[in-house]
Amino acid sequence: MAAATGPTPARRALFAAKRFLLFAVLWLVLTGAAPDGLGFGLAAALAATWLSLVLLPPGSRAVSLFSLLPLVPGFVDRSIRGGFDVAWRALHPALPIRPDWYVHRTRLPPGGARVALGSVVSLLPGTLVAGSFGDRLYVHCLTADEAIIRSVEAEEARIARTLSEEDAGPERQPR
């Protein structure tokens, strides 16, 4: 939910430049910045930029992945806790799990925001998203309890807050 108007030419150029930078860095990483490959890298990055603009054009309502970047440390923290949680349950002799489903009605707009919510909830301890059907997110829980539902709602609120702050002004520091 960025600006309501369509992207201006300047915005489009900036968008293309960002994509190009991403692919260029990717090439450098893959080749270890080998000097004799730089020419090929330039051509490959330009071609990849063109292709990505065709396949995923910059829409005015698209959620920028970069806007979700401040959430990454939290993702890492929760994915570590998620890993410990499931490892403990898998190795525990009594197998302390009680699998069940929880259907979450999301308030987030379709597209990137919902995908982000699905990915984050899948990282949380004890929850896994089986995709969204309409505004319903099908969450599979290893142990269905109120804490799980609260944590899904907390993640949704966090993402919604990040998005609304992006709308309010890119200078503001999220969180």
């Binding site: 994915s79 998620g82 890993g83 898998a90 896994l128 089986a130 599979h140 290893l142």
Partner: peptide, 15 residues
């Protein structure tokens, strides 16, 4: 079940 196994597959292996 398959869904519970996916928990193990994604979370523990990612970590």
């Amino acid at each position: 079940d398959a869904y519970s196994r996916l928990h193990a597959l994604t979370k523990a292996d990612n970590l």
